[in-house]
Design a protein around this nucleic acid. Structure first.
Lengths: 161, 161
DNA sequence: GTTGAAACCGTACGGGC
DNA sequence: GCCCGTACGGTTTCAAC
């Protein structure tokens, strides 16, 4: 089964929307009054536009950034996975979605089929997770341990390059 | 230059904090009243605890999730980078931080030194970005294009595995 | 898009355990 | 030290224009 197909082509309508997206990206907890000042519209107008941007999925949601160490998962890794039998239907993402150590799952070009990003407590837990992944999805894996994260999840600004 | 050293060892104090972190992760825009209901404490108590969690860096911040296509960057890729001269001081993360197409930068174990995750508008832009990276940091690169993203940035729940 | 009024929320402060 | 209740100012929301 394939994953949900994204909506046709949600794009920004005008420069005002772009400014709102920029401002919200840089300050997701800002008030409508701050947004209003940043884009030069009334509070109500900004609110209406923001609701439309959220409804269209341009702003897909909001997230709290939690320190991985604080929640007991200091060890991160990339795991490339390759189906053992290329003839079989490939449903790896669905087969793995229940493993909540997996933070991201992309299909990729190249030798491997998917790239996962995972977080676990210890090398021992990483070993167990890799085993679970191999068994659950009938895949081989190639794991690359993260030694240090310099930055991640930097805001995605419209127009900004 | 090395990146900022993370604070000693920010950890959760008790089960109530864990519940707050869980609730905030699942609903970052929720009100204190909702949090209060979720964890069974008064609004004031929840607010005090939340502020401490934020001050300690357990909750490092909040982010808006923006649709990459909507802001004109539908193409994502992983870029592994390796210094051309291992004898030189290695400051790649700092040399690259100004490139805002780079969403994440990790140092990794294995043949390469760093793993980047980037988003660009077109293959042409990816080519230019790779060139910029090679020139700015004196590195060789290995790029893996993302074909499809099934999920990413899933909430990091305390205790949950 | 704008204005304006009412409901709601975040915050600070006082008191009790 | 941690928690609860209350009161005030700012914010969100919605209707009318």
């Amino acid at each position: 089964m394939t994953p949900d197909v994204p909506p046709p082509a949600a794009r920004l309508d005008d420069e005002t929307d772009a400014r709102i997206v920029r401002a919200v990206s840089l300050n997701p907890r800002g008030t409508l009054a701050e947004l209003s000042a940043a884009v030069g519209l009334s509070v109500s107008a900004v609110q209406a536009r923001l609701r439309k941007l959220e409804a269209r999925g341009v702003i897909a949601g909001y997230r709290a950034v939690v320190d991985p160490e604080a929640v007991g998962k200091p060890l991160a890794a990339f795991i490339e996975i390759t189906p053992l039998d290329p003839a079989q239907p490939d449903t790896a993402p669905e087969l793995l979605v229940h493993l909540d150590e997996i933070e991201a799952c992309h299909s990729i070009a190249g030798a491997a089929s998917y790239m996962l990003f995972v977080r676990v407590a210890t090398p021992r837990h990483l070993e167990m997770l890799v085993r679970d992944i191999r068994l659950a999805a009938s895949v081989s894996t190639r794991t690359t341990v993260v030694l240090q994260t310099f930055y991640e999840g930097r805001p995605l600004l419209p127009g900004g390059g």
